[in-house]
Every structure is written in C-alpha cells, then in structure tokens.
Lab assay of single mutants.
Amino acid sequence: DSWHDTVDGIELELHGADEELLKLAKELLKRGVSEEEVRRIIEELLK
C-alpha cells in the first residue's frame, strides 16, 4: 500500500511522537485523509 510509505515518512519525522499518534496517523491515512492533513492534525496535537 502506498500509505505505508507515507506513514514511514511521517514516522521518521515524528520520531518523538508517541505510539498513539502514529496509530492515529495510520488510521487517518487508511481512511483516505491526505498526508498534508494528517501532518497538520498531528502537529496540532503535538503543540
């Protein structure tokens, strides 16, 4: 799946992010949310 590559990229960027955020990112990508949107959501949550 192409979203796996996206998640791997996000995981590299979010090496400090907790497991729950990564699960959320994967779930959003699986549901068709764009990579940009996922990054934006996670950045908001990390604030």
Rank of each mutant, 00 (worst) to 15 (best):
D1T: 10
D1P: 09
D1I: 10
D1W: 00
D1Q: 14
W3V: 14
W3E: 11
W3N: 09
W3A: 11
W3S: 14
W3L: 10
W3Q: 12
W3Y: 12
H4D: 12
H4Y: 09
T6F: 14
T6G: 10
T6I: 15
T6A: 11
V7A: 11
V7W: 15
V7I: 13
V7L: 11
D8G: 13
G9F: 15
G9K: 14
G9T: 13
G9A: 13
G9D: 12
I10F: 14
I10K: 07
E11P: 09
E11S: 14
E11I: 15
E11Y: 04
E11K: 13
E11C: 08
L12H: 09
L12W: 10
L12Y: 06
L12F: 14
L14F: 15
H15Y: 03
H15K: 09
G16W: 13
G16I: 14
A17N: 07
A17S: 07
A17T: 08
D18I: 07
D18P: 14
E19G: 09
E19D: 13
E20V: 07
E20I: 08
L21R: 01
L21A: 03
L22F: 06
L22S: 05
K23W: 10
L24I: 07
L24T: 03
L24Y: 12
A25Q: 02
A25Y: 06
A25H: 02
A25S: 03
A25K: 03
E27S: 03
E27N: 03
E27K: 05
E27W: 06
L28K: 00
L28F: 02
L29R: 06
K30E: 15
K30M: 13
R31F: 10
R31H: 14
R31L: 15
G32M: 01
G32V: 01
G32Y: 01
V33D: 03
V33M: 09
V33N: 03
V33Y: 15
V33C: 07
V33Q: 05
V33L: 12
S34L: 03
S34Q: 05
S34R: 05
E35C: 12
E35K: 15
E35R: 15
E35L: 15
E36Y: 08
E36T: 10
E36S: 09
E37W: 03
V38Q: 00
V38Y: 01
R39S: 05
R39N: 04
R39T: 05
I41Y: 05
I41N: 00
I41G: 00
I41S: 01
I42Y: 01
E43P: 00
E43G: 11
E43S: 09
E43W: 09
E43C: 03
E44A: 10
E44F: 06
E44T: 06
E44N: 07
E44Q: 07
E44V: 07
L45T: 03
L45G: 02
L46C: 02
K47I: 11
K47A: 12
